[in-house]
Each structure stands twice: as structure tokens, then as C-alpha cells.
């Protein structure tokens, strides 16, 4: 279990990294936290000509607030996200989801940008990005562009990034004060990739649900935003019947695959169960801040 030979570069600036990426013309891999890439290399499932290590670019690791958003440098460690006061105050859903990401040693190395760019549909961060309608910033030789989740995620482990582009920043709109939220996940063991995960946020106004956001992990080739389920809640509120109807709808909206850990039927069932649980927990938290 040793990788084939590859060149190794450790640039110290983003421009240098981009220029290296261009030089290899698509045959290089970016090394962020390495928690998924290193096994792929060791299994020889990925055989790039070069690794471009982003870990020595300090300018890519930050958490800051701007224009009502929280902006994360792509190389921000999951552990930094987990303990950031800014995240705690402005993005409690992201903080809760982070606790489901692997285990402590994994979060110490893993990065927010790496997790999203890797586009594993069972991962927690892509679901949060979808639920909160965040964006990613991508830099390449043709300049900078921002992508919404539905523009970014194509299918399993595949994004719309070009081979010469680098995901540099993740932008998540700060959650409104009083928003209720919950991240529910079922994995066979804590720390495993989700069988199903549900990211939920609700904004309650009196008896109305002004905004509902629901997105999945593990329920298909990309994170699924459950718009029809959200609409039920925005129309009918957050009573038991509406939550059950939204959960039912969630199960119909997803098209999960079967694998050795869970059949499509079981995943669909879990989507319903966890959607209802997430909504009830989010409702209990709503307005309480």
C-alpha cells in the first residue's frame, strides 16, 4: 500500500500553487488535509504526476466576517471551525455538523475547503453548504468565480472545478438571530461517513415558518436540497402534521443508492426519520437566542 512515484511541491503562495497546477495540465492533485487523498494514493486509485501541498500557504487559513457572511479560507482546519467563536455565534449549524466529521485526529488535519472540493456526498460540509445557500470561491488562470452548491457538485467525488482551478474560500451567510437549527446524522459508528445526514434550519415568525432549509448527506450522488419539503413547512408551519408531511416529502425527494451499509429503502426511511427529528430539534431551538 505505497503510492506510485509523484513530484511533490509545497508552494507558499496561492499564485505559486496556481502556476504549478497549470504546469501539470490537470495531472496534479492538491493536498489539503489529506484525509481522503492519502488513502486514494496508497491504494493506487489515484496516480497523479504531482502533489501540490497547500499546507504551507498561510493566507489560505482564516475565518472572518464580511457582508453578513462568514468566510473561511479553504485550508481552515475542521478543528478550527469547531472551536471558532465566530462560527459558534453566526453558524451554529456548521458547528454542530463539524462534531460529526470523523474523529478528533481527522478534524485536526481535515480542512473545510478540502472536504467540500472532495465532494463526497456523505460528508457533512457539503450538506451544510447546500442548506445555508453558501458559495465557494474558485481561483484559476482565468481569474476568480463564485459557485453555488448546485453549480459546484456534479456527482460522486466530482465538482465543476476545472483542473487548473483551486477552491480558495467558502462563504456561508450568517444565520439570522433566532434561527432554529439541527444537524442529525445516522452512521453505523460515530465518526463514520453518514448513512444519512440532515442539515436543517428554520426561521419562525409567530406561528409561521418564514424560512425552512433542509439538505441531505448520503442520500444520492450530491447533497440534496429538499425544497418541496421546505415549501410544506413555509406554507403550513411547524406543527406535527406539517413536520410529518415534510419528512414524508423528504423521503420522496431523495434518490439514494444501495451499498453494503444500507439499502436505498433504508436510506429513504432514515431520510424521513432524521428530517422529522432535525425539524423538531430546530423548532425547539428557534427564537431562543
Amino acid at each position: 500500500m505505497k503510492p506510485p512515484r509523484f513530484d511533490y511541491h509545497a508552494p507558499t503562495s496561492l499564485d505559486e500553487a496556481l502556476s504549478l497546477l497549470g504546469r501539470y495540465g490537470g495531472d496534479a492533485k492538491l493536498l489539503a488535509g489529506g484525509q481522503s487523498l492519502m488513502p486514494l494514493l496508497n491504494f493506487r486509485l489515484s496516480r497523479p504526476a504531482a502533489l501540490i501541498d497547500l499546507n504551507r500557504i498561510p493566507a489560505l487559513a482564516y475565518i472572518k466576517e464580511a457582508d453578513g457572511q462568514v468566510r473561511f479560507g479553504a485550508m481552515t482546519r475542521q478543528r478550527a471551525v469547531e472551536f471558532s467563536p465566530v462560527v459558534q455565534a453566526r453558524l451554529p449549524l456548521l458547528q454542530e455538523a463539524t462534531r460529526w466529521v470523523g474523529h478528533l485526529p481527522i478534524r485536526t488535519r481535515g480542512t473545510i475547503g478540502g472536504s467540500i472540493a472532495h465532494a463526497d456526498p456523505s460528508a457533512e460540509y457539503p450538506a451544510v453548504l447546500a442548506a445555508l445557500e453558501g458559495q465557494v470561491v474558485v481561483r484559476g488562470p482565468r481569474g476568480e468565480r463564485t459557485l453555488r452548491p448546485e453549480q459546484l457538485f456534479r456527482t460522486y467525488l466530482t465538482t465543476s472545478l476545472e483542473a487548473d482551478e483551486i477552491l480558495t474560500e467558502v462563504r456561508l451567510p450568517g444565520m439570522p438571530a433566532g434561527a432554529g437549527y439541527a444537524f442529525e446524522e445516522f452512521a453505523r459508528r460515530h465518526g463514520d461517513f453518514a448513512i444519512i445526514g440532515i442539515a436543517a434550519m428554520v426561521i419562525v415568525e409567530g406561528r409561521r415558518c418564514r424560512t425552512a432549509r433542509l439538505a441531505t448527506a448520503g442520500a444520492g450522488p450530491v447533497p440534496v436540497r429538499l425544497r418541496a419539503a421546505e415549501e410544506i413547512l413555509e406554507k403550513d408551519g411547524l406543527g406535527d402534521a406539517a413536520i410529518d408531511a415534510a419528512a414524508q416529502s423528504a423521503g420522496e425527494l431523495v434518490g439514494p443508492d444501495s451499498d453494503i451499509h444500507a439499502s436505498a429503502d433504508y436510506r429513504r426511511h432514515l431520510t424521513r426519520v432524521l428530517t422529522a427529528r432535525a425539524l423538531r430539534r430546530a423548532l425547539a431551538r428557534a427564537g431562543g437566542r
Binding site: 488513502p39 453505523r188 459508528r189 460515530h190 465518526g191 463514520d192 461517513f193 453494503i260 451499509h261
Partner: peptide, 16 residues
């Protein structure tokens, strides 16, 4: 063999 890694062959952890 479909469980040729420890991501697919699951042993209990301290949490289990």
C-alpha cells in the same frame, strides 16, 4: 471482497 478496508469492515470503537 466488498469490505477490504476498515471504512467498510467496521470494528467497534470505544464509543460503541
Amino acid at each position: 471482497l466488498l469490505t477490504a478496508t476498515l471504512m467498510d469492515y467496521l470494528v467497534p470503537t470505544a464509543g460503541d
